[in-house]
């Protein structure tokens, strides 16, 4: 199976690559549109700042490439946020795959809940979906982020921090996870495994 990891100016892509390696997949880190288009699976990892990431993608016309992908596509962390319509991080217009807005966490008045949201938090309100098949009992994922996607019709799972936000999104051949599956122990590994096991030529009925 050919897996393309979209290369852009985002941090710690290496961890995602190693996580895939543990599942027996040798992913290629690339910003070559042809390689991305011809891969069986495309993963859009990320950690970093939204506006510079979007500029980088646009300069290489990768924004258009991503919108036209037909095979299973997975956004992770900043990757999820960039698939939404807009983020408050430097008032950035994003790719618009998901009709969802990304907002900044406002620390709770009590000071109990800090920003960024760092650490292990649980997935809740899971919707039946091939990505969420046969998950382990422990639903904790590792999070590091200051911005979150609002709840919407494409939300597959939620997490609660200051308020409920979107933990996982799905629309057509696009999935996205706010936490870091590559750092989330057994649960994260299972999510990546399920993503790799999705049918390659998607028909909307299957999903």
């Amino acid at each position: 199976m050919k897996v393309a990891l979209i290369k852009y100016n985002a941090g710690n892509v290496q961890s995602v690559r190693y996580a895939l390696e543990r599942l027996g997949v040798d992913a290629e880190l690339t910003d070559n549109p042809e390689k991305i288009r011809s891969a069986d699976r495309v993963i859009f990892p990320g950690q970093g700042e939204a506006s510079s990431a979007m500029s980088y993608l646009k300069e290489r016309k990768l924004d258009q490439v991503i919108r036209e992908i037909k095979q299973p596509f997975l956004g992770v962390c900043l990757g999820l946020q960039l698939l939404c319509t807009h983020t408050e991080e430097n008032d950035t217009t994003c790719l618009g795959i998901f009709p969802v807005k990304v907002k900044r966490f406002i620390p709770s008045a009590s000071g109990q809940e800090k920003v960024p949201h760092v650490g292990w938090n649980s997935l809740e309100n899971l919707v039946k979906n091939p990505l969420l098949k046969d998950l382990p009992d422990s639903k904790f994922m590792y999070y590091v982020h200051s911005y979150f996607a609002e709840l919407g019709e494409h939300t597959l799972a939620t997490t609660s921090y200051i308020q409920d936000f979107t933990a996982i999104l799905h629309r057509d051949n696009f999935w996205a996870i706010q936490a870091h599956p590559e750092k989330s122990s057994m649960l994260g590994e299972k999510l990546l495994e399920n993503f790799l096991a999705l049918p390659s030529s998607p028909s909307p009925q299957i999903y």
């Binding site: 543990r22 590792y142 590559e182 750092k183 122990s185 994260g188 590994e189």
Partner: peptide, 8 residues
């Protein structure tokens, strides 16, 4: 460690 450990 990065290759073999699945937590941060």
């Amino acid at each position: 460690v990065a290759k073999e450990v699945r937590i941060p």
